[in-house]
Write a protein that binds this DNA or RNA. Structure first.
Lengths: 168, 168
DNA sequence: ATAAGTTTTCAAATTATACTGAAAGTTCGA
DNA sequence: TCGAACTTTCAGTATAATTTGAAAACTTAT
């Protein structure tokens, strides 16, 4: 297979993959493109390679930057802005975990804590099931939250060595 | 807070949460409703409580069943079908992991393996960056896949005990 | 100060996704 | 075998998400 074709296939699959995880296609595709590009690209480069509009590239690039997955780069002597993506996949993963934790998991845990305090007789099975379910999810979520915190701070090799200890 | 209100808030938030993870709102809401309902519900119950159409409930219920999160229940003497959700959150989580692994992670790994075999000079930095990126993602994905396999088979308490060993 | 180069914004258009509801299909008891 | 009870399907409709493109807002260099 030729590089161009492989690249195209990777970008397109990464985009489709993203849509299954709540990430819009173009954003995932820009990320994929930057990950396989050795040098920083301009907005025009991305527009040309993915065949999308300037506004679209601009907005999604901003989002990617807010997720900490892409950086603006100024090349000396150049007027244009360039963009580059983190290529260490462990760093990419921990960055995404950190952001989703902050944006989604933590607010959810806050809500669940709130919902546990309902009036009503615990003898009523409707009440009991509700409280038990909420409590169960919250406990699980808190454990996940802690585990992910450690993971985010961890070094990849240390983390993998640790997993081996459990799983062998 | 009253039970009815808390329930409503949980269902609505669970739906919004789902949409951030590629799950449609109604499907997530049906799941939430069944998780907090002590007894099995009929399609009509769900239609009434979530105010959605029969077709919508039917299709999403089928999906939930295919994800292994909801079961059909036949109550003796009753003509109608009833539905009930797994309420042990560890089981829910491992079930989701198992399905997403099968539906998304494994096909992606297969594609990546395929994409690593490209023609071209490894001295070309475009080629090198592509191969390195793909290889990096694939390696990471394989490790995640293995780890999740163990997790899916594991018992919750065993798993948590193991994590403690790493993280303390 | 100004103009060319560049980035950002956002209303409108487009596309993708989800939902409805009625008809068709199925099941089961009499 | 019939028909009432119930479930499934899917074309059409509605909603939500994404994308465009052109105008506005910047940002230098001179």
């Amino acid at each position: 297979m030729k590089l161009t074709e492989a690249k195209q296939q990777f970008i397109s699959s990464w985009g489709a993959f993203g849509t299954h995880w709540g990430i819009n296609r173009t954003m995932a595709q820009i990320h994929a493109l930057l990950m396989v590009s050795p040098d920083p690209l301009t907005q025009d480069d991305v527009m040309a390679q993915l065949d999308v509009s300037r506004g679209n590239v601009n907005m999604n690039m901003r989002d990617l930057i807010s997720w900490g997955l892409v950086d603006r780069v100024i090349l000396s002597g150049e007027r244009k802005e360039y963009f580059t993506a983190e290529k260490d996949i462990w760093k990419v993963a921990t960055q995404i975990i950190q952001e989703r934790k902050k944006r989604e998991l933590e607010p959810m845990l806050k809500l669940l804590a709130h919902l546990e305090n309902i009036e009503g007789d615990k003898k009523d099975k409707e009440v009991k099931q509700f409280v038990d379910t909420i409590a169960g999810i919250r406990k699980f979520g808190k454990q996940a939250d802690q585990m992910l915190s450690v993971m985010v701070k961890a070094d990849e090799s240390w983390f993998l060595a640790g997993l081996l200890k459990i799983f062998k």
